[in-house]
Amino acid sequence: MRREQICQEIRFLLDSLGERAYFPNQFRGDVLTDMAQLLPGTLDLLILRAVSLGPLHGYGILLRIGQISDNALLIEQGALYPGLFRLVKQGLLKSNWGTSENNRRAKFYELTVTGRKRLQEETESWNRLAGAIAAALSQQPEEV
């Protein structure tokens, strides 16, 4: 049993080496990773938003983000977790172990009071920023 486990693990490791080589587009989710690099904190904002609609476990948050953005924003799966832990450390989320809908043990996250306040602030600030950029981009040459 142990040997088979090891063989499997090695195969998974090697597979992850070649993950980019033979993986279909759907779950590559490079888009948001790039975005998260451009605008730090955007991922956090999305997580907070996703959780604000109700406590979720990690996989559920992933799905929820895809849902509320109409599948336009997709996250590389593992990249979620550093963000989650960071938010827990900052006190914006709190976590609890529970049972999921599939009857499995999972860690559930929900907003704290500070988290809810932060979400509101960040949303307003993001909207302001987006509005300003949109206005700048829509300027006609004569209006400058």
């Binding site: 476990h57 996989y59 559920g60 977790y81 599939n102 999972a106």
Partner: peptide, 15 residues
């Protein structure tokens, strides 16, 4: 804990 959480994520995806 971390291990367990990540494993749980993957199992949900597998489901």
């Amino acid at each position: 804990e971390m291990d367990e959480e990540l494993r749980s994520h993957m199992e949900h995806r597998a489901d």
